[in-house]
Computed example of a mutant assay.
Amino acid sequence: MPRARANGLELEYDTFGDPANPPLVLVMGLGAQMITWETGFCELLAGHGFHVVRFDNRDIGLSSYLDELGVPDVPAVMSGQAPAPYLLADLADDTVGLFDALGFAKAHVVGASMGGMIVQQLAIDHPDRLLSVTSIMSTTGDPSVGQASPAALATLTRKPAASREESIEQSIAAYRTTGSPGYPATDEYLREKAARGYDRALHPEGTFRQVAAVIASGDRTEGLRDVRLPFTVLHGEADPLVNVSGGKATAAAVPDSELVLLPGMGHDLPEPLWAEIVAAIVRTAARA
């Protein structure tokens, strides 16, 4: 797959659809590689007339690692006693750098979880580079909304696995905790997905730096009140990792945004809901 030089880093990416079509850039979440945007989902979007790009954020997958920054003391970052190695604004700047590398003057953006936070930051910092924004299963950074359940939070703070098999079992257990109760996946599917991610790239140190970035970036609510872009929020009503209150608060902050609540959806993108999710993205883009 190709790499783009962006914001002083190398970002791994790939594309779907006709390059002559309007660009739509998919931004993935915490510790999640670009292949978490499944190929079938990307192809479905491309079939609606987009040039779809997915990529690995810094510190994950096959993009640049920033190991020289060290592993942050997350409790110290939470208490304000230590800085984060970087912020969500830096990941937003990476995305703009990807636009530049690929020749996009403007693009539609779709972000999931931490990726939703990144596209929110893009809308605040770089509105002139965006055509539309879709924020999925994300939150504003206000600590009073979007809280994780204790069991879901534990999936983020577990000790890194010591072997391939342990990593796969951890991934399956995490899905069973955070995934969609209305659309359960089979063990076979989850095992194949976890193995594919492990074999492609594993970099837990980068995930800790991304956690610190989320914590240290603060509340975007006031910045979101000034956004004047076609903007849609999608959120699963059964999301245990980012409570649905985070999605509702995001939609409430952005003027003229659309809120789509999905019963039975947890913190994942189940295939039975792809058509509904893509329809909302297409609808948002059409407002541009």
Rank of each mutant, 00 (worst) to 15 (best):
V71W: 00
P143E: 10
A6N: 00
E169H: 12
G218F: 05
I281Q: 04
L62W: 04
D268H: 04
F104R: 10
V145Q: 08
P230R: 12
V71M: 13
G206C: 03
G111N: 00
L156P: 02
P184C: 01
L130H: 13
S79G: 07
S171T: 15
A238I: 03
R200S: 09
T155I: 10
L273W: 01
D125H: 13
V52H: 01
H267D: 07
D73L: 10
D268G: 11
K159E: 14
P270F: 03
L156R: 15
P204G: 02
A213G: 09
D93K: 05
T177A: 02
A275F: 01
N57Y: 01
G247M: 12
V109L: 02
A288G: 14
N7W: 10
P22T: 05
V74Y: 13
G8W: 06
M34D: 10
R209S: 04
F41V: 05
V109K: 02
R5W: 09
A89Q: 06
C42A: 14
A92Q: 02
A238M: 06
T95N: 05
L24W: 01
L261T: 04
Y175K: 03
H108V: 11
T250D: 01
T207H: 04
R129Y: 12
L11K: 11
P22D: 13
P240A: 14
G103L: 12
D18Q: 12
A162T: 15
V227M: 10
W274M: 06
H267K: 07
G236T: 13
E192N: 15
L69I: 03
P75I: 04
G179A: 04
D59V: 08
E68I: 02
T186R: 08
D67K: 08
I277L: 05
R129T: 02
L190V: 01
D256C: 05
I136E: 03
V233Y: 09
V214N: 02
M137W: 03
V242K: 02
F41C: 12
V278D: 05
A201H: 04
F104I: 08
V119W: 08
L11H: 14
E237P: 00
T39Y: 02
F231R: 11
V260H: 14
A174L: 04
G218D: 05
R129Q: 13
L102S: 07
L202C: 13
F231T: 03
T155F: 05
T207F: 11
S79I: 04
S217M: 05
L98C: 04
G31H: 13
H126S: 08
P150T: 11
A84C: 09
I215H: 00
A185Q: 14
